[in-house]
Amino acid sequence: MDTYKLILNGKTLKGETTTEAVDAATAEKVFKHAANEHGVHGHWTYDPETKTFTVTE
Rank of each mutant, 00 (worst) to 15 (best):
K11G: 10
K5M: 07
L6F: 07
H41D: 12
H38T: 08
E16C: 12
A24L: 10
A34H: 15
T56E: 09
T56W: 08
A21K: 01
G15Q: 14
L13M: 14
W44N: 00
V40G: 02
A25V: 11
K51S: 03
H38P: 02
T52V: 07
N36W: 14
A35G: 03
L13G: 08
V22D: 07
D23M: 03
T19V: 14
T56S: 08
T52Q: 04
T3A: 05
E49Y: 11
N36I: 14
F31S: 00
V55G: 00
E28H: 11
K32E: 05
T3V: 13
T45I: 07
T56V: 08
G10E: 03
K51E: 01
H43R: 11
A34V: 15
V30R: 09
Y4N: 01
W44L: 03
H41C: 11
T17K: 12
K32G: 04
D23H: 03
T56P: 01
G15L: 15
T18N: 06
V40S: 03
N9M: 11
K32Y: 08
V30T: 10
T3R: 08
V22T: 12
K11F: 15
H41V: 13
G42W: 08
K11D: 10
V40P: 02
T19S: 05
H43E: 15
N36H: 14
G10S: 07
E28L: 15
Y4K: 01
D2Y: 13
D47W: 04
H43F: 14
T18S: 11
L13V: 15
K14T: 12
T54P: 00
Y46R: 00
K5R: 13
H33V: 14
D23W: 03
T18D: 05
A21Q: 06
K32F: 08
K14V: 11
T18Q: 10
T45N: 09
T19P: 00
Y46P: 00
F53Y: 06
G15W: 15
Y46N: 00
T3D: 04
D23N: 09
G42H: 02
E37I: 12
T54E: 07
K32A: 07
T52D: 00
E20H: 10
D47A: 06
E16L: 05
V30P: 01
L8I: 15
A21S: 06
K11N: 14
T54Y: 07
H33S: 11
H43T: 15
A21V: 04
K51F: 08
D2P: 07
T19N: 03
A27Y: 00
V22M: 13
T50G: 05
H38V: 15
A21Y: 02
A27R: 00
A21C: 08
G10H: 05
L13K: 07
F53P: 00
E57M: 05
D23Y: 03
T52P: 00
H41P: 03
T56Y: 08
E20N: 11
E57Q: 07
T17P: 02
Y46M: 01
G39K: 07
H33A: 14
E37Q: 13
F31L: 06
P48Q: 08
T12P: 04
F31Y: 02
I7F: 06
E20A: 10
D47L: 04
G39A: 06
E49C: 09
E57I: 06
L6N: 01
W44I: 03
G42I: 02
Y46K: 00
D2G: 09
D23F: 02
G15S: 12
D47N: 10
V40F: 12
K51T: 03
T12S: 11
A27G: 01
K29S: 10
H41S: 11
A24Q: 09
D23K: 02
V22I: 13
A21N: 03
N9I: 15
K32D: 03
G42F: 04
P48E: 11
T17M: 15
K11W: 14
G39M: 06
K5I: 11
T52L: 04
A25G: 08
P48N: 07
F31G: 00
I7Y: 06
G39D: 06
M1I: 10
A21F: 04
V30C: 07
T17D: 07
T54R: 05
I7H: 05
Y46D: 00
A24F: 13
T56C: 07
H38L: 15
A27F: 00
H41Q: 12
A35Q: 03
G42R: 02
V55F: 05
A27I: 01
H38A: 15
K11C: 14
I7V: 10
T26V: 07
F31N: 00
K14F: 12
F53A: 00
T12V: 12
G42K: 02
T26K: 05
I7N: 04
V22C: 09
F31V: 01
T45G: 06
V55Q: 01
A34N: 08
T3W: 09
E28M: 13
T12N: 14
H41G: 06
A24S: 08
M1Q: 08
A25W: 10
A27W: 01
